[in-house]
Amino acid sequence: MSKTSTAVNAIKAFGTDSGDPKNTHTEPRWPAVLALFSIAGLRFALPDSLAIGPSWLLIVIVGILLIPTTWARLRGSDLLSQTLGYILTSIVTLDMVWSLTLLLRALPAHTESPQELLRSAAALWIANILVFASWYWRLDAGGPRARELRGVHTDGAFLFPQMTLDNEAKREMGEQCWSPGFVDYLFLAFNTSTAFSPTDCPVLSRWAKLLMMVQALISFTTVALLAARAVNIL
C-alpha cells in the first residue's frame, strides 16, 4: 500500500468511531472540539485578574486532554472516551464559573476599567453558550456514541421537531435516520441564553431543566452586568 493510501485511510479513521460495523452513521466530532478550543480561546479576552494562571493555560489543557480522548474513541474504548470527555468539559465549565465569580467581585470594587468589564462579560456570555451546548451534546440520550449506535434518535431529554414527524413524513424528507448533532444543541443553548427558553425544543428531562435554569441564570447575570456598565459609561 502506498504512503498516500495509508494517509487517506488514517484521515478517514479519525472521523469515524470504532464499534459496531453495522453502524453506518457517524457524527462528526470536530464541531464539539472547535467549541472547546473556542471556550479556551475566549480566555484571552479576559484580564489576568479574572483568570486562573496565564491566558494560554486552558487551551493547552484542552489540547493535551483531547489526545487521549481521541485515542480512546478510535480504539473503541467508549467508556474511557466518554469519561475523559466529561472531565474535559468539567474543566472548561469550572474555569468559566470561576472567571464569572471574579468578574462579579470586581464590579463593586472598581478594580477593572469599564471597557475590560464589558469585554469580559461578553466573552463569558459566549463561553456560557458553548459550555452548555457541550454538556447537552454529551449528556442527551447517553451521548453521541450511544446515539450513533441506536441509528435514529427517538427519545431523549429534548423533543426536537424532527422527533414529532411520522414515519411517512420522515421518509419524504429523508430523515429516517435523523439524529441531533452538536449544532442542534448549540442552537438550543443559544436560545436559552438569549430568549431564556428552549423555543422550538420542549425539555423533557429533569436534569436538562436544571442545567437550562443554571445557564439562563448565568446569561441573565452577564447581560445585567453589561447593561449596568453601559448605563454607567453613558
Rank of each mutant, 00 (worst) to 15 (best):
I52R: 05
I52Q: 02
I52Y: 04
I52D: 04
I52M: 02
I52G: 01
G53I: 01
G53M: 02
G53W: 01
P54V: 01
S55K: 08
S55L: 03
S55V: 03
S55C: 00
W56K: 00
W56A: 07
W56D: 10
W56F: 07
W56Y: 07
W56I: 06
W56P: 01
L57F: 11
L58S: 10
L58I: 09
L58Q: 12
L58F: 05
L58R: 06
L58T: 10
I59Q: 13
I59L: 11
I59W: 11
I59R: 08
I59T: 14
I59P: 05
V60D: 04
V60E: 10
V60M: 13
V60S: 09
V60K: 03
V60A: 13
I61Y: 08
I61Q: 11
I61G: 11
I61A: 12
V62Q: 04
V62W: 07
V62A: 06
G63K: 00
G63T: 04
G63D: 05
I64C: 07
I64G: 05
I64M: 06
I64E: 03
L65V: 08
L65R: 00
L65N: 06
L65P: 02
L65I: 09
L65C: 07
L66S: 09
L66V: 06
L66H: 08
L66A: 07
I67S: 00
I67G: 01
P68I: 10
P68C: 07
P68T: 08
P68R: 04
P68M: 00
P68G: 07
T69H: 09
T69M: 15
T69Q: 15
T69N: 13
T70I: 14
T70C: 10
T70Y: 08
T70D: 14
W71N: 09
W71G: 04
W71P: 01
A72L: 09
A72F: 00
A72G: 00
R73P: 08
R73A: 15
R73F: 15
R73V: 13
R73G: 15
L74K: 15
L74I: 15
R75L: 05
G76N: 00
G76D: 02
G76H: 02
G76L: 04
S77F: 09
S77W: 09
S77H: 12
D78C: 04
D78T: 14
D78Y: 06
D78W: 06
D78L: 06
L79R: 13
L79P: 03
L79G: 11
L79N: 13
L79M: 13
L79S: 15
L80W: 00
L80A: 08
S81Q: 14
S81L: 05
S81D: 13
S81G: 15
S81H: 15
Q82A: 15
Q82P: 02
Q82V: 09
T83A: 12
T83E: 03
T83V: 14
T83N: 12
L84R: 06
L84E: 04
L84Y: 06
L84Q: 11
G85L: 08
G85T: 11
G85Y: 09
G85E: 12
